[in-house]
Amino acid sequence: MDLELLLELRNYISICGHTPGKLKLKFGLGVVRNPKVIRYVKVNGFGPPKGESMPGIIKTTFNPLSRSMTIRYDKDVIRPELLHKLFICKNPDEFEDIAGQLASTVNFDLAAFCN
């Protein structure tokens, strides 16, 4: 996946609920029908790329019937307001900046996710 695709997919993702440590997202059909997303999920599941860990992410679960995902994360590692902002910002430059900040905060190689 690449940042441009992730930014585009955000048009089909909404936040259902967010308390520090738990973020619940709802996916529109534009996400679940996207061929790049389907390929990614077949290889990696609903988490980080296979073989990569994403520090601060405790667990992800996906409910295909409701097309929702719950992300449990360590609120002491990932700033809740920054994660929230990632899913609501509209500006591509702001999105890239926030993604970079989050990756830097948890010492995650964003390039591994974007390939």
Rank of each mutant, 00 (worst) to 15 (best):
P55N: 06
R67L: 11
F27R: 02
M54V: 07
M1L: 11
A111W: 15
F108L: 08
R33K: 15
L6C: 05
T70L: 04
L86Q: 03
V77Q: 04
L7E: 15
I58D: 07
E8I: 01
L5E: 10
K26I: 00
L7K: 14
I78Q: 07
V106C: 15
P80M: 00
G100N: 14
P92W: 12
N115V: 14
I38A: 03
Y12L: 06
K42I: 05
D93T: 10
L7T: 15
P64A: 11
N91I: 14
L25C: 09
K26Q: 04
G28C: 03
T61V: 11
F62D: 02
I98N: 04
P48M: 02
L7V: 15
L5V: 08
P92Y: 09
L86H: 03
A103G: 10
K90D: 09
I88D: 07
T61R: 07
V37H: 05
A103Q: 05
I13K: 04
F27M: 01
S14F: 01
E94I: 14
V43C: 09
M54E: 09
F62V: 04
G56N: 05
K85E: 03
F62A: 04
V41R: 06
R72P: 12
N11C: 03
G45L: 01
L5H: 14
Y73R: 02
G28H: 02
P20N: 05
